[in-house]
Amino acid sequence: MALVVAKISLSLVADCPTFRCDPRYFSNDSVANERKVRSGDYFELGDFLPNPMVKGIQPEYLDAPMEDSAPVINTLSIQRLTINEEACRHMSREDFDEVDEQRRLKLGDVLLTMDGGVSIGKPVLFDKKGDFTTDAHVCILRPEGMEPRSMVYLLASPLGQQQFRRAESGASGQTAVTEEDVRRFIFPASLLPKLDAVVAEIEKERGIIAKEQDALAKREAAAWTKLEKLVA
């Protein structure tokens, strides 16, 4: 009887395979966009990344910054294509001196969040002075043959973000993308001749928008002071 049961169990396993799919993988828009890109000339992001990507370490953080401590860029400190230094954690100077040279950030590095659910796929250009590194959730890309800022905008573009969503894998809330995934991201080759110029236009427009947003925020703060005066 035991032998018969074993045979039946094996049969069930063989005849009823399971396959876990993330429903976003089958998004009609993402599938259609990929087919459109592949129907013409295209390039993979890895074509401009000749060296391996570098992931940061998970350092022992200080409770508070010190005069000579080094900022560590994390997922929270990368927001809307900018680096918020106030959101960086800090590591001691002694620990930073032990950090591998490849993990010390250089001007022009492209930083990219690689895991953490909704935090996946946030790119930024490193343009700070001083000693910085990243934690284990942020990867360092050093493109060649493409302007680093242009790579940031490709990753942040709707087509780039769509590919992040398709590449995610792992348990809910703990998803990640791999270096191999990012290297296989595809974009139309027709972008390349005009990419830098378009990025410069977007940068200029975003600068204007940022100033307008700042002015609106100040107006809103001033409006709230009217209520504060009533309760003072």
Rank of each mutant, 00 (worst) to 15 (best):
R183H: 05
R142S: 06
P59H: 10
P193M: 01
C139V: 10
P52L: 10
M53N: 06
P158D: 07
V31F: 03
R89C: 00
L195C: 04
I209S: 13
Q213V: 12
L141S: 07
R149M: 10
Q162C: 07
E220R: 15
K204M: 07
L107E: 08
D47R: 08
F48V: 15
Y153V: 03
L81A: 00
G56V: 08
V37Y: 06
G56D: 11
N28R: 01
A221L: 07
D97S: 15
A222R: 12
N84I: 01
V54A: 11
E228G: 14
S27Q: 04
S27W: 02
D29V: 14
S157Q: 15
K129W: 03
A171C: 04
E98Q: 15
T75Q: 06
R103M: 12
E205I: 10
D68K: 09
G173E: 08
A232Y: 02
E101D: 15
P148V: 07
P143W: 06
A64L: 12
S157G: 15
V124Y: 02
Q161H: 12
V54Q: 13
P148E: 07
L195W: 04
L45H: 10
F126Y: 07
T75Y: 03
E144C: 10
M91F: 10
L10H: 12
I83W: 00
S172V: 13
K36D: 14
E60W: 11
A197T: 10
S30D: 11
R80D: 04
I186K: 03
F96Y: 15
L141D: 05
V138A: 12
P71G: 05
L112S: 05
A70M: 12
I208K: 13
Q58R: 13
N84Y: 00
P23D: 12
E203T: 08
Q102N: 11
K218L: 10
T134C: 11
R183L: 03
K204F: 12
Q163M: 12
L125T: 05
D68W: 04
F185K: 03
E60Y: 11
K36M: 15
E86G: 05
F187P: 03
E228L: 14
A200N: 13
R142D: 06
P71Q: 06
E86N: 02
G160Y: 10
Q58D: 07
P148N: 09
K229W: 04
L112G: 03
M151P: 11
I78K: 09
P188W: 01
E201M: 09
K211R: 14
C88W: 01
M91A: 00
V231E: 08
Q58E: 06
E220S: 04
L230G: 03
K194Q: 03
F185N: 00
F185R: 01
Q79W: 00
F48Q: 14
E60S: 15
T175I: 01
V198K: 14
D15M: 13
A217C: 06
I209D: 04
Q163V: 12
V37L: 06
R35Q: 12
C88A: 01
R219Q: 06
R184Y: 01
A167K: 01
T82Y: 00
L141Q: 08
S77T: 00
M66P: 03
P17A: 09
L107H: 11
Y61N: 13
P188Q: 02
L159Y: 12
R104D: 09
D100C: 06
Q213R: 14
L81H: 00
K106W: 05
L10W: 02
V138E: 13
F132K: 14
L107Y: 09
